[in-house]
């Protein structure tokens, strides 16, 4: 029987998988928002049930900033850049979704050996979900063409790391949480600005074509 936090974590990982199968950048952002909301609400659950996490209002701030603010900002960027779909590089998009399912299975394998605790899923669910999110984010960054997708992939990875920390510590201290949040916000802002600059200079944001920087 899964606890509420573990269920939410698994759901977040599954939404991450769905995200990796999206061709539309905007739907990927929506799915990212859902996934982040789920991740952030786990902190909420911890603070409400075990009184170990940060206070309720801070969790609420996290939810607002990450699940509403960042997607909103990214949506605005997408609208300004006028991109719609990301057809994917190296791997067809649907296939990358199936690969991320395989990675989910792998992360279950890793997580259950990591905990050492048991072969039961409930013990390993949180860790599984977080490792899977990291993998999914990485795969997303690897198999996508547009710079904006790289940001989404990066944010998914960040979600995974945050979730792992949350799961292991059962709620992090306020100062850590705020620090992470600020870092992410700053990173997203900077990345957004950089994407604008890339678009302005190169007339596109296709990462596969940005290979002129190698040393020859």
């Amino acid at each position: 029987m899964l606890g509420l936090a573990e269920t939410l974590a698994t759901a977040a990982a599954i939404f991450g998988i769905f995200m990796s199968g999206c061709r539309h950048v905007r739907s990927a952002i929506y799915l990212y928002a859902v996934q982040t909301a789920l991740v952030a609400s786990i902190a909420f659950v911890y603070s409400a049930s075990e009184h170990t996490g940060p206070a309720l209002n801070i969790s609420l701030a996290v939810v607002l900033a990450k699940a509403v603010g960042i997607p909103f900002f990214l949506g605005w960027v997408v609208k300004r850049l006028d991109v719609r779909t990301d057809s994917g590089a190296f791997l067809p998009v649907p296939l990358s979704m199936h690969v991320s399912i395989a990675l989910f299975a792998t992360s279950y394998y890793l997580a259950s050996s990591l905990d050492g605790a048991a072969g039961t899923f409930s013990a390993a669910a949180g860790a599984t979900a977080s490792i899977s999110l990291v993998f999914t984010g990485l795969l997303f960054m690897m198999t996508r063409r547009l710079a904006i997708s790289q940001i989404i992939g990066f944010l998914t990875m960040e979600n995974g790391i945050y979730l792992l920390g949350l799961h292991e510590t059962r709620g992090m201290p306020v100062i850590v949480e705020m620090g992470v949040l600020l870092d992410v916000l700053a990173a997203v802002m900077i990345a957004g600005v950089i994407v604008f600059r890339i678009k302005k200079n190169f007339k596109h944001i296709d990462v596969t074509r940005l290979t002129g920087l190698n040393e020859q």
Partner: peptide, 25 residues
Amino acid sequence: APEFVAYGLTMSLLALLVALVTGVS
């Protein structure tokens, strides 16, 4: 069209994963 089919397969694979994971325990 294969992309749409892929979503069906994803659902099935996830179901299978859930079955395996809960079945082993």
